[in-house]
Amino acid sequence: MSADPGRTRRVFFREAICRAVGETLDAEPNAIVMGQDVGAFGGSYKEFYGLFERFGPARVRDTPVAEAAMVGLGVGAAAAGLRTLVSITYMDFVLLALDPLVNYAAKARFKTGGQIRVPMVVKLTAGAKGQGVAHSQSLESWLVSVPGLRVVAPSNVADAYGLMRSALQADGPVVYVDHKRLFPTSGALDDSVHEVPFGLAAVCRPGRHASIVTHSYMVCVALAACDQLAVSGIDCEVIDLRSLAPLDLATVCTSVSKTGALLTLEEGQVVCGIGAEIACQVQARLGPVRVMRLGAVPAPVSSNPVLEAATLPNAARVADAVRRLLMEG
């Protein structure tokens, strides 16, 4: 497809990622992609479709099933002058690769007095979609507390593209979290080359009564809940964080100042979750406000559809949480 600046077209989530990665490979001869099945197969979610044919096996590299070494190589290569994107099909498996990511990449610039930088993106796919206890987790809250790591999580096509562009221009390690249930979605994407900056949340639905602060696929769930609540006259604002580290507290606080009620929503665990951090930081800035946190129940996420659904937030649970939050006040 030839670019036509100013024109907007409808693309799938995976195509938005692929476009941003392809543009980077085009513009930067030192940029490479590594991961399992990223080559001729085109990525597990087809998010690298066509890149192997365009850029060849040296720059779009299939790796063995060895997450620790994949990320370690990505870190080392980035530290020595390449720009790397390492793709891990299931976020659960980043646990195998935390040593190079947390102990090396996040600390390299600091520990070497600025001699080494690690311009690397680790792309992880989070979320539950019928694949069971070790293929369904949303673990981004584990990573946001690591100084030196930036963590972003788009919820729509435009941000999938713009945040990937930004991630591939960063001079340090970035964790890019996408979601299995977002890959089949589509949306509008402007043909112009552009970025979504880190640390900037988006108000994706304005509202008066409560602020739902969330990210990734849960934005879709929150918006569905808002439609249900609107029927009974409850008007919620939805903030899509987009960037989890750094956090855009200013946008969140502006919203909560207006509505006076905060529901944090995430697919991961509530304990030590993104919501806990936001609730604490918002109250430190604004003083006491009505707050509720919603996330996965404290149990593994089964592949059994009944049990999976029992574990995770859905629109009805979000709507119910908002009602309870507003009743408390």
Partner: peptide, 13 residues
Amino acid sequence: GNLSIAAGVALAL
């Protein structure tokens, strides 16, 4: 911890 990092450096070299 430095083994896969070194392999990455080798890839860049």
